[in-house]
Amino acid sequence: MTPFAFTRAAATDEALRLAAAPAARYLGGGTNLVDLMRETVERPATLVDVTALSTAIEPEDGGLRIGAGVRNAALAAHPAVRRDYPVLARALLAGASAQIRNMATVGGNLLQRTRCTYFYDVEGSRCNKRVPGAGCDARDGFNRIHAILGASQACVATHPSDMAVALAALDATVHCTTAQGTRTLPLVDLHRLPGDHPEIETVLEPGELITHVTLPALPDGTRSTYRKVRDRASYAFALVSVGAALRVEDGRIADVRLALGGVAHRPWRATQAEAALRGLPATRASFEAAAAAELAAAVPLRDNGFKIELARRTITAVLAELSGVDA
């Protein structure tokens, strides 16, 4: 691990000031960043511990305000999350292990980096994220876990978060701050597609700090859930995951929000499928057609073509479950 200075912020202003140091990084629970530093993928000169900031979960405007320092376990266990946003509770509980959920923060979860094995392999592999312009050994390598949507020649990595997929489906808003002021972003706009610059993973400016995330209330009658498909029953990253919120009225789809994990460089809001579903009868045929519409743009790599069929089936199964249609 490269030497670094450790600092701790007691207030947002202090965090922004400390993060103005060269090559500074904010530190949450450390469950990804410490590992990346040990592998020398990340070499910050200064760490700014922001875990003491914004640790509250509070009702706000009928929805919920979640501090960036809230631990994953605390968020999953919160009564309002379990009651009103099951998709979020289930996504959190499907992620990592209990130990890591006790450490990991909301802000850190959003900004965690891909688990592409080539990205981690500093000694042996080329990676455009680590060394812009170096090339991508994943594109023609062992790419079973890689992206089927929105990838580029430069990068086929996926975003590893479960929580972010649920937040994408819930129309969450990310609240950020810099020395110049605050701004809000739709969560679905926080992460970028890789394009020619996969090393730039979010739209955040250098030193910009995520302070909290807000969730709007879901309309009455909405049901939501999260399903994660992975290589083992627990403690593994998603091959494909689906977060969905669905409201059916008189047998027709009144509202649907659908997001996919494990398939793209960012949490993938399935807008094509949503558009195809609104107003249709809540039937298995509708769900299958919508899933096919979303996945029409999917491009398989050598090893991950199975993800297209897996995503189609998982989308269909989740919507069938939420609507009460026989799966």
């Binding site: 701790r8 450390g30 590992d35 130990q99 890591i100």
Partner: peptide, 28 residues
């Protein structure tokens, strides 16, 4: 030493964590 096996699990204020991914200075 990368948070995957749990052999380093300890309790901090009664909560279990993996101590390998914890920087000691963060636990003041």
């Amino acid at each position: 030493n990368q948070g995957a096996c749990g052999a380093c699990t300890v309790l901090v204020d009664g909560e279990r964590i993996v101590s390998c991914l914890a920087l000691a200075v963060q636990y003041d």
